[in-house]
């Protein structure tokens, strides 16, 4: 659950340290909690992590799109990952954070989008050969979004693909 809460500050620090790290065979993933499950995204796709500060609603948008926020002058959409993955909605609390991710659209344009998650967890180093294909039988997660499965101390790590996840 949330016993491994790392603050936003710490994670951001780790993100900063990563710039110098170059290890060819290990990919690093930032993990976060959603409905007690640990999910992760390629850390190189993570631009920054912010506290939830609200967003301006976009009329007639999909329910998972919470709206747009101001990221130092840039308009960035924010998506509730629980709703995107079809999980139960949960009220935002002090642990709720927005992870700003870079993704590439089908047209090859790089965009950024925020995703709301319950809490950030940790940074994991996983070598590509340890990533397993996700079983086809995923119950409530759209299989397209899942890149594969990794493992962490606490159990399975669901690796998400930002490109499909954030394409609306």
């Amino acid at each position: 659950m949330t016993e491994e809460i790392t603050d936003v500050e710490k994670i951001n620090q780790k993100l900063g340290l990563l710039d110098g790290v170059e290890n060819a065979n290990v990919e690093q993933f930032l993990s976060f909690f959603l409905d007690d499950e640990e999910y992760a995204v390629d850390i190189l796709r993570v631009q920054e992590i912010r506290c939830w500060e609200g967003a301006t609603v976009i009329p007639n948008s999909p329910i998972s799109v919470k709206g747009v926020m101001n990221l130092r002058g840039t308009i960035v959409p924010v998506m509730d990952l629980r709703l995107r993955l079809g999980l139960a909605e949960q009220a935002y609390n002090s642990l709720t954070v927005v992870i700003v991710l870079k993704f590439i659209t089908q047209d090859g344009i790089e965009k950024i989008s925020g995703v709301v998650v319950d809490a950030v967890a940790d940074v994991h180093s996983i070598s590509p050969e340890d990533i397993q294909q996700a079983p086809e039988l995923s119950s409530n997660v759209n299989a397209n979004f899942v890149k594969g499965l990794g493992s962490s101390k606490s159990g399975a790590l669901i690796l998400l693909d930002p490109d499909t996840l954030l394409a609306i």
Partner: peptide, 24 residues
């Protein structure tokens, strides 16, 4: 709005108000 999102019907763009919030 399209730089990071899509075109939204009825909306031509967005702006940032004095308090830092976004308005469409």
């Amino acid at each position: 709005l399209e730089a990071n999102y899509n075109k939204v019907e009825g909306i031509s763009g967005a702006t940032i108000l004095g308090d830092g919030t976004v308005s469409l």
